[in-house]
């Protein structure tokens, strides 16, 4: 006999202001483009940050970046869970966008683990309906 059980959801709704840098990044995602930011030393960070993690200096000018990038490292998720970005097996990867000097963590919809490799060229794939959230950038896909 199955033991009686009850399901609960504990949920917290929160709202925060994004500031000029993260706000610009999500504005870019909503509009279907990637935005990075230049550090004082001329490096480009994507995702953009308010401060340069290398030295704590304030970052400067926002720059538009292309949708293409290169996988630097990855981890295969063979059994996606409810809150994962994709329902089918995928890879979490660090992806260096062309023109950027830092990497962004996102899902790669590679279809098969065998496709994944450091150096794999990928392209951003945006959601059809975009509202200014991280999920607007659905995933990355290998460039054929």
């Amino acid at each position: 006999m199955d033991r009686p059980s009850e399901n609960f959801t504990l949920a917290l709704k929160y709202k925060r202001t994004l500031g000029p840098v993260v706000g610009a990044f999500l504005t870019g995602l909503r509009d279907g483009r990637l935005v990075g930011i230049k550090t004082a030393e001329g490096r480009v960070l994507c995702p953009p940050l308010e401060y340069d993690p290398a030295n704590g200096q304030r970052t400067g000018e926002l720059v538009d970046l292309p949708d293409n990038g290169t996988v630097e490292s990855w981890s295969w998720v063979s059994e996606p869970q409810r809150k994962h970005p994709l329902e089918r097996p995928f890879a979490f990867a660090t992806i260096r966008i062309d023109g950027a000097d830092s990497a962004l963590v996102h899902a790669v919809d590679a279809g098969s683990r065998d496709v994944m490799a450091a150096g794999l060229r990928v392209k951003a794939q945006y959601a059809e309906e975009r509202t200014g959230r991280m999920r607007d950038l659905e995933c990355f896909v290998p460039i054929a």
């Binding site: 009686p4 609960f8 949920a11 709202k15 610009a24 909503r30 959230r133």
Partner: peptide
Amino acid sequence: EQQAPVVMMEEIVSLEYTTLA
């Protein structure tokens, strides 16, 4: 409105769990 910059985020953090008798 679609062109306005994104300045806020609103999310729900949630945890689902099951309690057995």
